[in-house]
């Protein structure tokens, strides 16, 4: 400590001590980092908006994509992602409570609330893994024609018919994943006169049986989604989904790691020795930012 002080006295550089903006160096830099991160995320979301605008006909509608809820049969659009939002908001609240306890130098309080925040973080990561699993495995199945356009099978009114309903005539058990060959689907399509094709997008244009028959002659089956194929619609939707929620999930993961590091420090009494709990505040800023980004991802991926 005395060394540090001597160094500063002899150094021509500004030694700190006064805070022009009323925040410490560390907190200020955390804010600047978050500012740049916010600009990155806004870039991703704006880019997604652009392509969504361009490919409106084949851009998936979220309620046809995210329909599952654990231990529940049937369609439950939005519910699971609402639960994820709730978990993240709750873990943000416990983080503020931890910061608050830190202001009062209440070590036990910080341990309790920070511990709950970490648990919330793990719940969120688990939920995201579950959602990715279902997104990757696919749900209804679709066909892809030569120019890589995706079409859902549907009845004449445009209600989606899943591949399972088409080939086996039954809705299929929840949670089971079947794989159908192109031949199976084409044969079943020939048999079922009442089935046609429709656009996956908002416009949901339904084609006549005659048009659909012509399109089916060179159609391939697509089940599930990855970076090059996407049964729900335009492949860029899948790319943006993996990239943006993946980038956000990486942030959540690093947030959990940071939380665990400061949690260990709190238990060891590091911040009591230091005389203040500002580190909780800095990591807390990062954690709230992760929640903030999710609020926007929630809106632009699932609601709008």
């Amino acid at each position: 400590m005395s060394n540090e002080a001597t160094l500063q006295k002899d150094s021509p550089l500004w030694g700190g001590g006064r805070q022009p903006l009323g925040v410490s160096y560390g907190k200020q830099m955390m804010w600047f980092f978050l500012l740049s991160d916010a600009l990155s995320f806004s870039g991703f979301l704006t880019a997604m908006g652009l392509y969504r605008f361009k490919y409106e006909d084949t851009w998936p509608v979220a309620e046809n994509v995210f329909t599952h809820f654990p231990f529940m049969h049937g369609d439950a659009p939005l519910l699971f992602v609402a639960l994820m939002t709730f978990i993240l908001i709750l873990s943000s609240v416990t983080m503020v409570l931890a910061v608050n306890a830190g202001h009062h130098m209440n070590r036990k309080g910080v341990i309790l609330w920070l511990g709950l925040t970490i648990i919330g973080g793990f719940f969120f990561l688990g939920s995201q893994a579950w959602e990715w699993y279902h997104f990757i495995n696919g749900d209804k199945g679709a066909v892809q024609v030569e120019d890589n356009t995706i079409y859902y099978l549907s009845d004449m009114e445009g209600n989606i018919v899943t591949l399972h309903e088409l080939v086996d005539g039954t809705p299929g058990e929840h949670g089971e994943h079947y794989h159908f060959t192109t031949e199976q689907v084409r044969a079943a399509f020939e048999r079922n006169e009442g089935v046609t094709l429709r656009n996956p997008g908002k416009t949901a244009t339904t084609f006549s049986r005659k048009e659909a028959e012509a399109m089916m002659t060179n159609a391939e089956v697509v089940q599930g989604a990855n970076l090059t194929e996407n049964e729900y619609g335009h492949v860029l939707f899948a790319d943006f989904f993996f990239f943006v929620t993946g980038f956000h999930g990486t942030h959540v993961f690093s947030g959990v790691v940071l939380n665990i590091i400061i949690f260990i420090n709190v238990i060891m009494g590091t911040y009591d020795k230091r005389g203040h709990y500002e580190m909780i505040e800095k990591v807390g800023l990062y954690w709230h930012f992760v929640d903030l980004v999710w609020v926007f991802v929630f809106t632009f991926f699932y609601l709008v």
Binding site: A5, Q8, G15, G16, G17, Q19, G22, V23, S24, Y25, K27, V93, V96, L97, N100, H103, H276, E278, E281
Partner: peptide
């Protein structure tokens, strides 16, 4: 003039009701 001072404390409301 120690550079590692915590931030100035700007009071948010007392207690936890606002959270």
């Amino acid at each position: 003039d120690h550079p590692k001072l915590p931030s100035e404390h700007h009071e948010s409301p007392e207690g936890t009701w606002w959270i």
